[in-house]
């Protein structure tokens, strides 16, 4: 058993699969992070991915061009995100309920469309859809063990790593990132600082829509080469849990989604030694929820400790919390 596990963790094949199954989760988790930072919960990520996966396959099969497929998939995912924005922001709906409703529309609608077009409810194998290219890295690929892990991955895996950097820069270095975080921290304060919260939230939803679209297209045009019903398999929901584990940062999203990726990849290996597949399939979700709980506990502990420290020092000489220096001209906006 121990030999087996050591063998698994030592094999480059395993880590190749880890990267492959982490990428889609990472992308949607980033999407969840950015919307949550803007103060709106994007529960519709699951629906976004489903539509992207389906439309990507349909568009690439219809045009014979994989990039048009990708663009179509991302557009479909964006439409879902914008619909959520329209209902949640313009019509004052409960964002979480709307997301759930959009996911229902996604699970039913994708099967409905697939059946209406192909006559098959389960799989799109009758369509000649394309797959996104796999890329061999020029120099990294020649390193003995590492090369096998990082090279030859699908282009979306590399895009996912790029997305981490992009989201990190957006959130931490750009004005718009400050606006996003200001809106998420306190809508009223943001509004009085001249920020239009609805516009900021729409923007965050747009970014998350693109990311979820990329992830969805990857599932049906890279991870596998077909659309199957329910292809996202709850990854959109996992992203909402992983977002908490990530602590609202892009870098944290890497670790949060790696937890899922590592167990997900392990599941495929564990099946070989005769553990019941049902237990193994539940493993990624179970581990995610455990991570989710552990992080919320530690966050609460920190919070409590901070409050205690604050109250303990308060009566002494009434020291105020250090006020961060504000630069003139570049305030909250």
């Amino acid at each position: 058993m121990i030999d087996f596990i050591a063998g698994v963790f030592g094999s480059s094949n395993y880590w190749y699969i880890v990267l492959r199954s982490t990428a889609p989760i990472l992308l949607v988790t980033l999407g969840a992070v950015i919307t949550e930072q803007a103060g709106i919960t994007n529960m519709a990520l699951e629906g976004s991915m489903l539509w992207a996966a389906l439309v990507g396959v349909l568009a690439s099969a219809a045009t014979g061009n994989v990039w048009i497929g990708l663009a179509g998939g991302i557009l479909a995912s964006l439409v879902v995100a914008w619909t959520l924005g329209f209902f949640a922001l313009k019509l004052n709906a409960n964002a979480v309920l709307c997301g759930v409703a959009l996911n229902l529309v996604g699970t039913g609608g994708t099967v409905f469309v697939l059946f209406s077009l192909t006559g098959d409810k389960g799989i799109s194998s009758s369509l000649a859809s394309k797959t996104l290219p796999f890329i061999k890295l020029p120099y990294l690929g020649e390193i003995p063990w590492l090369g096998k892990v990082v090279s030859g991955q699908n282009i979306v895996v590399y895009l996912a790593i790029l997305a981490v950097i992009v989201v990190h820069v957006i959130l931490n270095k750009l004005t718009i990132g400050r606006r996003i975080r200001a809106t998420g921290a306190n809508v009223e304060a943001a509004r009085s600082a001249g920020i239009d919260p609805d516009r900021v939230k729409f923007l965050a939803l747009t970014v998350s829509g693109v990311l979820a679209g990329l992830a969805g297209c990857f599932l049906s045009m890279g991870y596998t080469s077909n659309f199957t019903s329910g292809i996202s398999a709850g990854r959109g929901y996992v992203a909402n849990a992983a977002q908490v584990v990530a602590g609202g940062t892009a870098v944290g999203a890497i670790f949060a989604s790696l937890i899922f990726g590592i167990t997900d990849a392990l599941a495929t290996f564990l099946q070989n030694i005769g553990l019941p597949p049902e237990l193994i399939q539940s493993l990624p979700y179970a581990v995610t929820i455990i991570g989710f709980i552990v992080v919320t506990i530690s966050r609460d502990r920190r919070e409590a400790a901070r409050k205690r420290a604050l109250f303990a020092s308060a009566p002494a000489a009434a020291p105020r919390e250090p006020v961060p220096p504000t630069r003139p001209g570049r305030g909250a906006a």
């Binding site: 209902f87 313009k90 019509l91 004052n92 709906a93 409960n94 309920l97 709307c98 759930v100 409703a101 959009l102 996911n103 229902l104 529309v105 996604g106 699970t107 039913g108 609608g109 099967v111 409905f112 059946f115 209406s116 409810k121």
Partner: peptide, 24 residues
């Protein structure tokens, strides 16, 4: 007929979407 049963799930989502909207 030739209509997939799943379209009912879409309609369910639609109803929730409308009823969740405070403005409506």
């Amino acid at each position: 007929g030739d209509v997939a049963f799943e379209f009912i799930t879409m309609l369910q989502g639609l109803i929730i979407l409308i009823l969740a909207s405070d403005r409506i």
